[in-house]
Design a binder for these strands. Structure first.
Lengths: 71, 71
DNA sequence: GTGTGACTTCTAGTCCGTT
DNA sequence: AAACGGACTAGAAGTCACA
């Protein structure tokens, strides 16, 4: 599967797990709410720096966001 | 550790494991040799699309490139 | 075979608003 | 709360000449 798709799905999954809205999550990650929205809809590629910001905000290990079936 | 640092180190490690030069590897990945060079020296951020290209060229699972001590 | 600075083109990422 | 669009700026992609 495509890495962007996997990443998008995992962001959405972990974000919902934490009960965060896109808006609240975007603020935690220091990113823009429309950007998070675009990521979850697979409309964008992402730079590694922001991958890390997102992982931090979700409080998960970075590599978990690239595993297809990471629970 | 910083994700770019981890990624860089892993690219270098897996590339050397395969006995590929930066030049040969760059060609496999469809990227420029100086670009690979810059990545390995942590001089660049990278978008997910190229992360996948690199993982493909190295024939490793993408997530392995983000694990600090991934053999 | 690799490191490096500089350069142009293209896209990541922000910010406004509307649905 | 979230999808979506338009316009804008910062920064990544991609290449080169030279060391």
């Amino acid at each position: 599967m495509d890495i962007i798709k996997v990443f998008s799905k995992n962001v959405k999954k972990y974000r919902n797990k934490k009960g965060l809205s896109q808006e609240a999550f975007a603020e935690r990650a220091g990113l823009h709410r429309t950007y998070i929205s675009a990521i979850e809809r697979e409309k964008r590629s992402i730079a590694l720096e922001n991958v890390q910001k997102i992982a931090d905000a979700l409080e998960v290990e970075t590599y978990l966001l690239f595993i297809e079936d990471s629970g």
